[in-house]
Design a binder for these strands. Structure first.
Lengths: 83, 83
DNA sequence: GGGGAAGATGATCGGAGGATCATATTGAAT
DNA sequence: ATTCAATATGATCCTCCGATCATCTTCCCC
């Protein structure tokens, strides 16, 4: 199931899910990415319009990458909302 | 052909390609996204570690979205470099 | 080669994020 | 319920982006 992000909030949720899937803590992810636990928390909570570089650092530490794709007409969530 | 981004430079190049594919100028994209031509130029050139919110604004204006996926072992470019 | 549109870039300013200290609060495990 | 780890958050400082003015350079077209 692909994770789609159109907002910082989406991105934060996705990052959190990915981190938990790997079974590591915010502090550990922060250490790997070279940022602060505070920053990871902020981003996961969607509180901040973070900097792109920071996001890429986190993605790399999680072995993730971005694919830029055309917007799908229907997202998984749309479907879930309907049915 | 999917566009993969692991760095701000990748992202800038992808955004520029997408914009040109739509045949619009930086100024027009900027207007649609509610930012400045200066900002679009900065991001496309990869000069700035832009803010995530700005990126999402541009993506929306280009009808694009992000998919967060596991890193592929081999990227398209890797293959091109080999063959 | 001349001309005009498109993109790059200089400078200043204000706002907001990340670094960095800290503590509070939540959540899970026993 | 107690406890300890994990996460959220307060406060300050500094840096850097985006906003906003501008001009300069590039490039394409005739």
């Amino acid at each position: 199931m692909d994770q789609i992000a159109r907002t910082t909030k989406d991105l934060g949720q996705t990052l959190r899910a990915a981190r938990k899937a790997k079974g590591i803590t915010q502090a550990e992810l922060a250490a790997r990415a070279g940022v602060w636990q505070r920053t990871v928390s902020n981003i996961e909570t969607g509180a901040s319009g973070a900097k792109v570089d920071t996001i890429f650092d986190l993605l790399a530490a999680l072995d993730l990458e971005l694919r830029i794709v055309p917007r799908s007409k229907m997202t998984q969530r749309d479907l879930e909302d309907i049915f």
